[in-house]
Computed example of a mutant assay.
Amino acid sequence: MDMITSADSHQLPMLQKVLGAATEEASQAMSVWTGGKISLSLDCVREIPIEMVSQEFDLGMDLLTMVVLTIEGEIGGTMILTFDEENGRRLAASLFKQDVSTESEWSELERSALNETGNILGCAYFNAIARLVNSEFVPSPPIFLQDYGVCVLQQALMEQVQETTDVLICQTTFLQGRETLNWKILFLPDPKMRETLRAST
């Protein structure tokens, strides 16, 4: 587990435990959704200065397919599910047992498949955290995007710039058997969520 230390680095292992439990629950939901083909693994929990985020979480310069969910309310955060074009379309095709589309535009069915994937993952993840911190979260509907990953990440961070100088990010990877897929989840809790997570550890 790769972690970057911070002033609160002694709490990172405890935060890792909380977020690891949420990842495990999301993994179980993903396994059911994909017929046992896909699972999740917690990659890292990092607390780093905001200005370093884009460097540390290099999403490349290519357009990505993403599903974004947010937790609405006083305690919040953003979940960004990212795919490259090929892997996103493969997932959509496998869920509906169809051939991988070669059309330039994504169909409504493909978009729906990825949005539902984000919804299932987000609900499982957020519900697990809500139970662990004895709170209640209301996730937004999933939003399908095709954009540069760094732009979406920076937009998610903009809301935190006025409140904090560093950010907590949890990164999760996807596995098909033992093969690591080119999919990722980035979870960015806001400062109040971070305080709630710390208080629960």
Rank of each mutant, 00 (worst) to 15 (best):
A113I: 02
A113C: 09
I48E: 05
I129R: 02
T82L: 10
I71L: 15
W106L: 04
R111S: 06
E136G: 02
N127D: 14
N87T: 14
E108S: 13
I80D: 00
I48S: 06
R89A: 02
L114F: 06
L91P: 00
L91W: 05
Y125I: 09
L69P: 04
I80H: 06
W106H: 04
M61P: 07
L109Q: 08
S107G: 11
T78E: 00
A93S: 14
T78S: 11
T78C: 11
I129G: 10
R131N: 15
G122V: 03
D99A: 11
K97W: 04
L81K: 00
R90H: 09
L63M: 15
S107Y: 10
M52K: 13
E85V: 03
A113M: 02
D84G: 08
V133P: 08
E86K: 11
E72W: 05
T78K: 08
F96C: 13
T102F: 06
E108V: 12
T117G: 03
G122C: 08
F96M: 13
D62I: 14
S104F: 11
I120Y: 03
S112E: 00
A124E: 01
S101W: 09
L121H: 02
L91D: 09
D62Q: 15
M66V: 08
R89M: 02
E86R: 03
L91T: 05
R89F: 03
